[in-house]
Simulated scan of single mutants.
Amino acid sequence: MFLFVLALLPAIFSSGTGKAGSQTLTVVSFDIPGVIGTDPNGLYNQVLAQITEETGVEFELVIRPISRARKEYASGRFDCLLPLDPVFEGQHLDHLQSIPFQRARIHIFTPTGEPALRSAADLRGLRVGGQLGLPYPPEIDRAIGEDKVSDLHTLMQMLKTDRFDAIVAFTPDIYQAFKHHDVEPFSHDRENPVGIYRDSLTCQPTGRNRTLMQQVNDALTGMGRN
């Protein structure tokens, strides 16, 4: 896994030893193009940088594959995990959670120009693709079955090449991917997601983290993300 340090950025990248200064949170995440990852221009990278500017709280951000990120956070190696999903959240109800960075929505996408689909019932008889490691509502997950790929770009390509009739993906992730890969947006019903999840920072329930999380939440409130 490619890890690096950008010392001049407020949101710091590191190898993730779990050791940090009193005003630093170690954060493990997974790559979502245009949202969070090794690109400092990602949406959540910029949110972290703005929190640092507002509060002085710094973030050592490490990118891992999804399953490894969750495992290493659960083992206590990192202070925080971003983003959170409801399945993982249910196993860590006593952990600290920030105000949502974004309310992620799940939509069904069909090839550009095709009719929009709005429910799991609309997926019957179709080849439906999803992404490994991401949480879907049970009825959507059943429609996807084993047809899951490792990353969003591959999922998009498989819809473009007619290997899937429809795909299920999160926004804003796929909107950022459309821009990143210069792809014309696929058909979907923007106003009617099939699920809504909170993208939050979750942290180990220590006294130090609780103090820092209060500063993080104050900054997020000031940024209008409450």
Rank of each mutant, 00 (worst) to 15 (best):
Leu152Pro: 05
Glu72Ile: 14
Gly21Asp: 10
Met158Val: 06
Glu191Asn: 01
Met213Gly: 10
Ser14Tyr: 01
Ala120Phe: 02
Thr52Gln: 12
Ser67Leu: 08
Pro205Asn: 08
Lys179Tyr: 03
Thr202His: 09
Asp199Phe: 05
Asp39Leu: 07
Thr211Ser: 15
Ser67Met: 10
Ser67Glu: 12
Val62Asn: 08
Arg118His: 02
Gly34Phe: 05
Phe30Lys: 05
Tyr136Ser: 03
Arg64Val: 06
Gly34Asp: 02
His107Leu: 00
Val28Tyr: 07
Asn217Pro: 13
Val57Asn: 15
Thr154Gln: 14
Asn192Ala: 11
His92Cys: 09
Ile12Asn: 08
Ala11Val: 14
Ala104His: 04
Phe164Val: 03
Pro83His: 03
Pro10Arg: 09
Gly34Thr: 08
Leu25Asp: 06
Phe178Ala: 04
Phe101Pro: 11
Ser75Tyr: 14
Ser150Tyr: 11
Pro193Lys: 00
Ser75His: 13
Cys203His: 14
Ile108Trp: 00
Leu61Arg: 13
Gly129Lys: 03
Glu89Gln: 08
Thr110Asn: 01
Arg142Met: 04
Ser187His: 04
Gly113Ala: 08
Leu159Val: 03
Gln97Gly: 09
Leu152Phe: 03
Ile12Cys: 10
Val87Thr: 11
Val168Pro: 02
Pro185Ser: 05
Thr206Ser: 15
Leu159Gln: 01
Ala49Cys: 10
Glu60His: 15
Met158His: 07
Ile140Arg: 03
Leu96Cys: 12
Ser22Glu: 14
Leu123Cys: 01
Met1Arg: 08
Tyr136Ala: 03
Asn209Trp: 06
Asp218Phe: 11
Phe13Arg: 14
Leu84Arg: 09
Gly195Ala: 05
Ile12Lys: 14
Thr112Tyr: 05
Gln97Cys: 11
Met1Ala: 14
Asn226Met: 11
Ala20Tyr: 03
Leu126Ser: 02
Ile106Thr: 05
Arg118Thr: 04
His107Glu: 00
Gln215Tyr: 10
Gly76His: 12
Leu93Pro: 06
Cys203Ile: 15
Phe101Trp: 04
Gly76Phe: 07
Ile167Asp: 00
Pro172Trp: 00
Arg77Trp: 06
Met1Phe: 10
Asn226Cys: 12
Arg103Cys: 02
Lys160Tyr: 03
Asp31Cys: 06
Ile66Met: 05
Leu61Thr: 13
Glu191Ile: 05
Phe30His: 12
Gln97Thr: 12
Leu132Tyr: 07
Gln204Trp: 13
Leu82Ala: 12
Pro115Gly: 07
Thr206Arg: 15
Ile66Arg: 13
Lys179Leu: 10
Val183Ser: 03
Asp31Glu: 10
Ile144Asn: 04
Ser14Asn: 10
Lys179Ser: 12
Ile167Ala: 01
Asp189Lys: 05
Ile12Ala: 13
Arg105Val: 03
Lys19Ser: 09
